[in-house]
Amino acid sequence: MTPRPPAAPEGRPTRGTTGTNRLRRVDRWIAHLAEFRRAPDPLVVDLGYGANGVTTLELEARLRRVRGDVDVHGLEIDPERVARASEQLEATRRGATVFSPDARVSFARGGFEVPLPDGRRPAVIRAFNVLRQYEERDVPGAWERMTARLAPGGVLVEGTCDEIGRLCSWIDVDAGGAPVRFTISLRLAELERPGVVAERLPKALIHRNVPGERIHDLLVALDREWERAAALAPFGPTQRWMAAVAALRASGVPVLGGRSRWRLGELTVPWDVVRPG
């Protein structure tokens, strides 16, 4: 009997605008997550890594500082991208790149179905800049397909960022397919106002930034507190940002985390704060 060919990967190829250090903010987020730190098997999938494997290699380098036993598996639909990333990995093994020759990284072809060898299930799936080309109505199905592959207690981190990683936002989705947290992460130096992140919201929210929607209310309130904290500008943008976030929480917004996260330019809230109406 002729063996059946493998099914085609699910989804569409990303635009492939990969850039060094582009995903540093979300890498830092994943490294601190309890879902990763406490995972019995710290397998992380980088879904849709783009034109080459640099962001996957960077992700492993950052996560291994927390879990030396981390494995990072990059998946792409385009076979040429998989071949290119595999060549980068071979060069890394030879010591010809800035990454560790023993980097626990692998690359393969795959999409939303998240194919993995030996029946393993990831603790974390990072899917960044993957859903931007889809319709909002496609998001729940994509979340459900990816989270079905997570290990119990795992998390999908799905979001987007600008080309150089200065404006980022993402949603944490649990293994049951339910969104639980929303985060924005901004480079504070030269930040005009936090609301500029509106152009880099995840697909589930980007079309909801209109009056009457919760995400719009949050960004308006954050901009307002940023302006009110203008007197702290001479002390630097970090102090101004932290004051704005503290004031936002004091106003009743259930901001998560504390000053150590805010200092990084982050703001995290429960999903219900921004849930589309």
Rank of each mutant, 00 (worst) to 15 (best):
V98Q: 14
R62W: 15
L33K: 08
I215L: 13
L201I: 10
R137H: 08
P202E: 05
V72F: 14
R200I: 09
S86V: 00
D174V: 00
E266R: 04
P194R: 02
P115E: 08
P5Q: 03
E76H: 13
G50A: 06
A103P: 01
E163S: 11
V273G: 06
L47G: 00
E80K: 15
L63P: 02
G110F: 06
R121W: 03
R259L: 11
R224H: 10
A123M: 02
A103K: 02
G258E: 15
W170R: 01
G50K: 04
R22L: 12
G165E: 02
P234Q: 10
M146T: 03
L33Q: 11
R15T: 11
D69Q: 01
G195R: 04
T97F: 00
R81F: 13
V98A: 15
L248A: 04
P276W: 07
R132C: 10
M146E: 06
V245Q: 03
M1A: 10
P254Y: 08
W143T: 04
P234W: 10
R37C: 02
R104Q: 13
L188R: 08
D71K: 09
R263I: 07
S251D: 12
I77G: 14
P42G: 01
A31M: 04
P254V: 13
R38W: 05
P254L: 14
P117I: 11
R65H: 10
K203P: 09
R67H: 03
R109W: 13
I30T: 05
R24D: 12
A148S: 01
F112T: 11
A198P: 08
G74W: 15
E158W: 02
G53P: 00
R181C: 11
M146C: 04
G11E: 02
R240W: 11
E227L: 05
A204M: 15
S251T: 07
E190D: 07
D138L: 02
Q88I: 00
D27L: 14
G53Y: 00
S106G: 07
S251Y: 06
A247T: 12
C168L: 08
G195L: 06
W29F: 11
V180W: 06
E144M: 14
W29D: 10
R275P: 11
A221C: 09
R94W: 06
R228W: 08
R145G: 07
P117V: 09
I77L: 15
E90Q: 05
K203H: 10
L267K: 02
A243M: 12
R120V: 04
L219S: 06
V210T: 07
Y134M: 05
R25E: 06
L205H: 03
S106K: 06
L57N: 05
R263H: 09
R65K: 10
A178G: 04
E225Q: 07
L89H: 00
V124T: 01
L191M: 09
V72T: 12
V253E: 12
L188Y: 11
T55W: 07
